[in-house]
Design a binder for these strands. Sequence first.
DNA 1: GCATGATCATGC
DNA 2: GCATGATCATGC
Length: 441
Amino acid sequence: MNRNKYKYDKNSPQSILEYALKLSGKSLSEATQLPEGITNSRNRGDLGSLVEKYFFEHVPPNDHEPDFKEAGVELKTTGVILKSSSYQAKERLVLTMINYESLVNENWEESTLKKKCQLMLILFYLYSKDVSVVDRKFVKILLYSIPDSDITQIKRDWEAIKQSVLDGKAHELSEGDTFYLGACRKGSGGEKESLRSQPYSTEPAKSRAFSFKQSYLNKILEGLNENKRDIGLSKTLTIAEATQLRFDPFIGKSVEEISKELNYFKKSLTNKGFLKDISNRILSGGDEVLIELEKAGIELKTIRLNKSGKPRESMSFPGFKYLEIINEEWEDSSFFEKIERKFLLIIFQTDEKGSEKLLKAVYWNMPYEDRLEAKRVWEETKRRVAVDSTRLPGITESKVAHVRPKARNGSDKILTPQGDMQIKKCFWLNSSYIAKVISSL
DNA sequence: GCATGATCATGC
DNA sequence: GCATGATCATGC
């Protein structure tokens, strides 16, 4: 009896970790004796509590304390998938629910989030849709505390989320508001989605949780890879501040000057990605993407303005497939996933003499109402594709977004629900909308 | 000048 | 081979 009772020291994070490592390479059902009848669940939410109950034989406190209260360790289980021979996070890691009412009275040091999650035992398991949760193998186990180099940014993210609630805008929160720490949707979606009150507005807000963004989790998984350059100075600066420092020396300079200074030149006259290459090089000094930007899942976009300050082009997003969009939900679409992100806009402008210069680099995320409008265009597209894939929302039909071809050439076509082949298309943000964004910066 | 259609280089 | 970010081309 009490088989596991003395197998680890509840007061010691190290002891808990050592015990947890016995799960390495095994599934819960292999590592412990499970009662009959609980082995069929494919609900990922069940795994954490099952591990706690049957492996650790531990009852977690039912409050805002960490699961292992005495050691201050919070237990997390989360799925990974195998992508080109390395593990990638399947999704964001949910940390703890956001209570809008109490958040506004907290400060970071004594916050619910910090108390609960400053030390986490993260059990990564290999996800497979068809395998029940207790049979999924744990492939990576680690004790994680937020490193000093990330804490400045995470604290800033937490404060940004708190500020939105103070502004009475909890209902407008999106993951693009922040860099590493996100306010992700939590609770049932769709029609019956759970709404909560917020202290400074009568508008009900979707229930949300603090989370590590998927991109941030991927960096944890990589073991904060050594061979990638970081932006430097990040122990005291936020990502936004560090970005500004990188770009400042180049602001106002022409593309030719920048190209010379970086010793990086256009290899082909028709290279459509040259300004993006240049921008990446300003950020990193080389052609690798900065680790901080990857961690934050930032979307870097270049915008070229003509002499009168108007964007020359609309902004494209990944292509969609006619046969897929008709069965997709908005929040599962890649367009949704992209416009929820934080954007780093690198803006170039052609002056009176025809010289194109770097105007500024600025972070931006898409305001709530505009995301709603983009959603409307997406839903309308989905509706039309089911009926007639040839007539999709044009640029005149919305102030925010439209649908247009995005293909290799005129014969780059795919099948539609009507059974014919049509050119590949994608969603675009209207150039007039981009113009409005620029003028509001 | 704009809406719409077409296509390019690149990287994986 | 293909998705992606981006830009070019045409017609009104």
